[in-house]
């Protein structure tokens, strides 16, 4: 993975979002083991302290859990998994609305286009 991070948003926040997207898309499965902090730091080319902070945040949100000295795992809690998905959808819709509003079009005008694009996107 060679990804670029936004320079004006905390890197740990971006790492957390990336994990949420992977969980929501099914790329990461409930109960699946997370890479070690060091592995992830190397993979993402970021500071291990930043990864540590991202893991702490995900633990706090209940997205991952750690038992003893075992590697952290993705939660199997359906409530949390559903919440993650809702959160991502809300964020994306908010961004869309924010981008479209200044153009001053009615919802009725964009609805057909939105539907068409939604259906044609794989």
């Amino acid at each position: 993975m060679n990804q670029t991070f936004n320079k004006r948003e905390p890197v740990y926040v971006q790492v957390v979002r990336q994990f949420k997207e992977q969980v929501a898309s099914g790329e990461l499965l409930p109960g699946q083991e997370m890479p070690s902090r060091r592995e992830l730091a190397q993979k993402l080319k970021i500071n291990p302290n930043t990864v540590q902070r991202a893991y702490k945040e995900m633990e706090h949100e209940g997205l991952i859990y750690t038992e003893g000295n075992m590697p952290s795992k993705i939660t199997e809690d359906q409530k949390i998994l559903i919440k993650v998905k809702q959160e991502l959808v809300t964020e994306a819709v908010d961004a869309l609305v924010k981008a479209i509003k200044p153009i001053k079009v009615s919802f009725e005008e964009i609805e057909p286009l939105l539907k068409e694009r939604f259906m044609s996107e794989k």
Binding site: K7, R8, E9, P10, V11, Y12, T50, R53
Partner: peptide, 13 residues
């Protein structure tokens, strides 16, 4: 660095 980004600023900013 992360605290600067919390405020929406890059290091260069």
């Amino acid at each position: 660095a992360e605290e600067a980004r919390e405020e929406g600023k890059s290091i260069v900013d």
